[in-house]
Amino acid sequence: MEGLATAAALLAVAVLAIVLISVARKGLPALNLDFFTKNAAPFGETGGGIANAIVGTVIIVLIAAAISLPIGVLLAIFNTEFAPQRLADAIRLTLNVLAGVPTIVIGVFIFSLIVVGRGQSGFAGALGLSIIMLPLIARATEEVLLLVPSTLREGSMALGASRTRTVLTVILPTAVGGIVTATIVAVARAAGETAPLLFTCSIFVATTVTTDPRQAMATLSIVIFSSSESPNAHDQQVAWAAALVLIAVVLIGSIVGRLLSARTRRQIERAR
């Protein structure tokens, strides 16, 4: 039995390695400066790059973070500072259930809410991603807020500081590292999402960089998705190279997030 358990762990690590090696082997040959700085080549031509998709992904994910970060942190503060036990439990449960809603359904929701009548836009895509990020940021932030030693809070209150001042000047600064890591992990997750963008931000002009979120913008994930279904060898090449860029961003974000998170925990625990 013990051998089987070890084999299972090896298998999981091996699958990760196989996927990463495939993506690297097929993506690396197409990576060069042009790939990062040029837009997609016109149909039928080779060369070109994914500059527009990189710009689009960055803008959309930043907007999504700007929406979900404040709401998520406020939710976490409400849960740890004000909510009675039962309400806090209900909010946690709602966040978990929201995190479990299929991302494609979130795409349909944003389509119905915003795209119908107004058309696709980077903003609509960002709103979809923000719904995915919200539970991640809110739950992780709450966990860090709960780690802040109660002695710090009590000390601040005993010195006569109000609850608001305690939260703003003692608790949040102690927890800021944890909130940053939560945001990094959520950003990495959102950058890799395709389903919420499929109906909300997928029809764009591929040969120009768009920086206006009122229009649909190219994103890495949609570029990979649409080129992966193309029989054209050049499109496939673009898909692999874009996949390599995306997977690098997502994995680095996840790894950095996890390492930082472990560090923040240690720091807060040392303060105890």
């Binding site: 990760l16 996927v19 993506v23 990495a188 997750r189 950058a191 890799g192 999402e193 395709t194 389903a195 994930s221 990979i224 998705f225 992966s228 898909a239 692999w240 996949a243 995306l246 997977i247 997502v250 994995l251 996840s254």
Partner: peptide
Amino acid sequence: AIPSVVLGL
């Protein structure tokens, strides 16, 4: 953490 679109590709 591997994006599903990459896994699909």
